[in-house]
Structure formats: structure tokens, C-alpha cells
Simulated scan of single mutants.
Amino acid sequence: MNFFLQGLTMGIAYDAPIGLANLFVINAALTQTKRKSFLTALIIIIFDISLAFACFFGIGAIMKKFEWLQLVILLVGSLIVIYMGINLLRSQTTDISGEATPEMTVIKTITSAFVVIWFNPQAIIDGSMMLGAFQVTLPAYSYPIFITGVGIASILWFFILNAVVTKFKDKFNAKILRIINLICGAIIILYGGKLLLNFFTLLMH
């Protein structure tokens, strides 16, 4: 039970800081129907847990070993993230009801969520340092218990975040929602810009 609680608290610390995944879930909860926003949260959870598993078992070490892989992920990821942010800035919201929002297909949601989670090498490396370093302190038999706690934390965090935002989204009118979209879009573009800067920095070394 102790290892499970350690994994649970580590998982919350891993997911809680405001990042692309949280912004993605918040925006879906504000602009999509309850069913679609729930699906978005579920897809984010699946990719988030898969990344946590990969970090725990050492993908960060692989990225550090192969610099070309870092470069590819940085370049492609930064461009796609910037594109997503620009689309959010350009989106026009006249009504916050689900019927008034643009249709977001399951395929588009899956690909966008994949980019948000997996095309952020900084998150992969940070997650590897956080979870991978913790792995060293654990006995081998506790790995499944610990990583299960991390996975449960991801499920709880994103479902609760989605539920809270969905519950209170009716308090937002179209103007406020537009401002939120602009803020989220700007932050996402800044994330993408930071990734692109990291790409050029790594390329010049």
C-alpha cells in the first residue's frame, strides 16, 4: 500500500503543473459537449499513462543517447504545437453550447492528444528524471504497484479536471470563452516556440 500511495502522489505531482495536456482537457471541457470532453479526457489519460510507463522504464535515456531522435521530435512537435495554438487563436466562439462548437472528430482528437503528450521531449526527459530516478530507489517487486498508483493518479486528475470545468462552464459567456481561447492559444504557441528554440539550441551544439 505504501508503494501505491507513493505512485499516486508522484503521479499527481507529475500531472498537476499547468501544461499542454491540462490546457487541452480544459479547452475541450469548455467548448465541446459533455460526452466529447469526457472522451477527450479519456484519450489524454491513455497517452499520459503510456508516457508515464515509458518514462518509468527508461525512454528518456534512449532519447539522450540518440540526439537525432530528440531533434526530430523537437522540430515536428514544435511546429504541430504552434499550429494547434494558431488554430485556437483563430477559432470563433459565438455560443458555448456543444451544438455551436466545431465538430472535432475522434481521429483528430486522438492525433492532437498524441502530439500534446508524446511530442514534448522536455516532458519526456523531465518525466524520465522524475519517475526513472524514483525507480532506482524501489525494489523490483514494487514496480507494478508503484506504476499502478501513477496511472490511477492520471485517471483521477484528468477526469476531475474535466468534471469541474464542465460543471461550471455555463457560467462563462461567449466573450469570456473567447478570452480563454486566446489565452490558451497564446500559451500553447509559447510552448511550441520554446520547443522550437530548444531544437535550434540542440542543433547548434
Rank of each mutant, 00 (worst) to 15 (best):
I152R: 00
W157D: 05
I82C: 13
I80W: 08
S154C: 11
I26H: 01
V116Q: 07
C184K: 01
I96Q: 07
Y191Q: 09
L5T: 14
M204A: 08
A16K: 02
A123N: 02
P144F: 02
A174D: 06
L74W: 03
F24G: 06
S128A: 14
Q70I: 11
K64I: 07
S142I: 03
E67T: 15
G98Q: 06
T101N: 11
I145L: 14
F38T: 14
G60E: 09
V116S: 02
F66P: 03
L69H: 10
T94L: 11
W118Q: 04
I18S: 09
F47T: 09
K108F: 01
L71A: 05
L39T: 11
F200A: 07
I145H: 03
L88W: 02
S97C: 01
I189F: 02
F53H: 03
F168C: 03
Q70K: 13
K171D: 08
R178N: 13
D48C: 12
F56Y: 14
F57Q: 12
L23C: 05
T40S: 11
F199I: 09
G149L: 01
V116Y: 00
A28D: 14
I82E: 03
Q70C: 08
L202R: 08
A100G: 05
L131E: 02
L5C: 09
S128H: 10
P121S: 08
T137P: 00
I45A: 01
L79V: 13
P144L: 04
Q70M: 14
